[in-house]
């Protein structure tokens, strides 16, 4: 489903060049639950951003769902992300002026799904992530764990091909983090949606079915369990 081949990415800051990815290749199958781990600066967020089509590689190929995303224009990529990809961020990134319900519903509105269907799907997914009765609360009135559940619901409500989660438990305590991971795992099993995490949290690494270790911009190991 995802083919990343010989991807390189270099950042330039003034006179300094940082080689974030040095020829990374990776294949991800449908419904996989994969964790990309490694120390800070190893390139895991960069790789996740490139797979998530919010950053571009300097070299290499990135094929997602048989689409060569590197050949797409910015607006085409926006539409691709809208239809195929879900995101869960470390800092939740909910829209502050919107309620939990509206944050989730937003992605369906962007897909031009009718009000009735959007309502049905939003209510259902919020119930699944355990937020029934909290639909009208704004992010400021939700705990970190609850906000991350909204973010998961937002990522999954459109039935994406792939959900990318950048350090999803980093801002949560271990109990809440575990609960969030359980939800994601359950969703992965139920919907067959592939999940790719970036993390340096041992609990998340242990949780993944496949662990890709990055070090200094290269894949150090790739183990399935």
């Amino acid at each position: 489903m995802i083919q990343v081949k010989d991807v390189e990415r270099t950042y330039v800051a003034g006179d300094t060049k940082v080689h974030a990815l040095k020829g990374v290749s990776l294949s991800v199958k449908e419904g996989e639950f994969l964790s990309i781990a490694g120390p800070s600066g190893s390139g895991k967020t960069t790789l996740l951003n490139i797979i998530g089509c919010i950053d571009d590689a300097d070299k290499g190929d990135v094929i997602i769902d048989q689409v060569d995303v590197r050949s797409k224009k910015p607006d085409e990529l926006a539409v691709f992300r809208r239809e195929k990809l879900g995101f869960v961020f470390q800092t939740f990134n909910l829209i502050p002026v919107m309620s939990a319900y509206e944050n989730v519903e937003m992605v369906l509105k962007l897909l031009k799904i009718s009000d009735a269907e959007a309502r049905e799907r939003t209510m259902a997914i919020l119930k699944e992530v355990g937020l029934e009765g909290m639909e009208d609360r704004r992010p400021s009135r939700l705990s970190g764990g609850q906000q991350q559940r909204v973010a998961i619901a937002r990522a999954l409500v459109k039935n994406p091909t792939l959900v990318l989660a950048d350090e999803p438990t980093a801002n949560l305590d271990s109990v809440t983090g575990k609960a969030v991971l359980d939800i994601m795992k359950a969703m992965n099993k139920k919907y067959g949606t592939a999940f790719i995490f970036s993390t340096h949290d041992k609990m998340v690494m242990d949780f993944a079915e496949r662990l890709v270790m990055l070090h200094d911009g290269k894949i150090e190991s790739d183990k399935r369990r």
């Binding site: 919010i54 607006d75 926006a78 539409v79 992300r81 995101f87 961020f89 937002r154």
Partner: peptide, 8 residues
Amino acid sequence: TMRALGMT
């Protein structure tokens, strides 16, 4: 976030 979620 809005752009990542698919807004042009």
